[in-house]
Design a binder for these strands. Sequence first.
DNA 1: AAAAAAACTTAACTTTAGGTTAACCTAAAT
DNA 2: ATTTAGGTTAACCTAAAGTTAAGTTTTTTT
Lengths: 225, 225
Amino acid sequence: MAKKPKILCVDDEQDILDLLTFNLEKEGYEVCTALNGKKGLEVAKKELPDLIILDVMMPEMDGMETCREIREIPSLRNTVITFLTARNEDYSQIAGFEAGADDFITKPIRQRLLVSKIKALLRRSGPMDKGAEVSIGGIEIDREKYLVTKDGVQIQLPKKEFELLVLLSSAPGRVFTRENILNSIWGNDVIVGDRTIDVHIRKLREKLGDENFKTIKGVGYKFEA
Amino acid sequence: MAKKPKILCVDDEQDILDLLTFNLEKEGYEVCTALNGKKGLEVAKKELPDLIILDVMMPEMDGMETCREIREIPSLRNTVITFLTARNEDYSQIAGFEAGADDFITKPIRQRLLVSKIKALLRRSGPMDKGAEVSIGGIEIDREKYLVTKDGVQIQLPKKEFELLVLLSSAPGRVFTRENILNSIWGNDVIVGDRTIDVHIRKLREKLGDENFKTIKGVGYKFEA
DNA sequence: AAAAAAACTTAACTTTAGGTTAACCTAAAT
DNA sequence: ATTTAGGTTAACCTAAAGTTAAGTTTTTTT
């Protein structure tokens, strides 16, 4: 099974969160929640969800503001964000799109519409990054063929190493924290020792060249050409 | 050789049609065109293309509407549809997916991206059940005759083995997950044990040579020459 | 219609790739 | 100099795939 899409719901009402969680989990999504914008931002950074549902009306940091901040974070730049608003608040919609929203869901939430919108949004974001081949500095990655080519030589990587490479190369130059990596590749619930990542990084360095995998001490790793 | 995929382009600007036709024919596709949604629908019914490129903005019947109508026609239900939009018309994209689009191509059209998207979309849309003969590395597959020839020797494969071979060979080199395989050959709902696939793979290896069927542990299988 | 054969699935068991850990080492930062 | 994060290695362990044979089901033959 392809990894379950992860959805973050941010709302100050626990009721709404419960409703969303219930409906989305039923559809097979992995759901995480936050009770305010600030928490939402934190969770988003940590969990790197595929889609975020943001309530517009929240105390302290409202949806707009949260959205703007999320859009500032490189690792979340391509995450789909949809707002939750009261019906017919046209005005907020305009502002919302300016803040970087991708869609709006109106309250009261109709379960069927919610699910179909979510599906459509995820589908939309899907085809983009499915382009199978990436090529950076002599290294080609073909996700469909599960094959890496370095300077014309094909290399067969084990699953975890491949996934790690795909992750790091998805944003060359960007630092991924250990936490990022664990969440993306292992999932938040799985617990593996600290050294595990190092070992995989080591293998990658061995196979693809030391110079491409940089350590940022105290922060994480990045892939560079 | 598998039959050329047929692509229908619908746009109200002749310039765009010419550009698309030129680029796609160069890649070996068969191209037909229509200057508006209504004509597009007619041509689609007649030609049964494998993929349709629809401009969103057209007078009279726009892309969305055309798309919806196309989806109503049973013989075109599985045709891949991709929209042509001006850059960053996010909102129309959402509506587009709801109308049944599979992907979007943004104007201005970048030739390489266009071609790679088309390729990816056609590949994903699954094995074309039209073109009958495939030949890869000493193995010939004739889907019409249900016949496999290895190094000139005809081999009679049972149904499941044959289907599995056809699936894997439909995209040589590409890894098919167990889930992929189950969905394609057995259908979404049928439940068969995990080991069933292995057994069929084993039979294929036995009959057609071990080396052609690679295991990607934790991922799936692929067929290679 | 019964018997036989072929194909398909399952179950039980073995094998193995590769993922994880633990223990120790090294280098960078304070 | 001390601390701490990361690097390295090899042993260990496990989930996934391979194998085989024994049921089932389906198809063909008589």
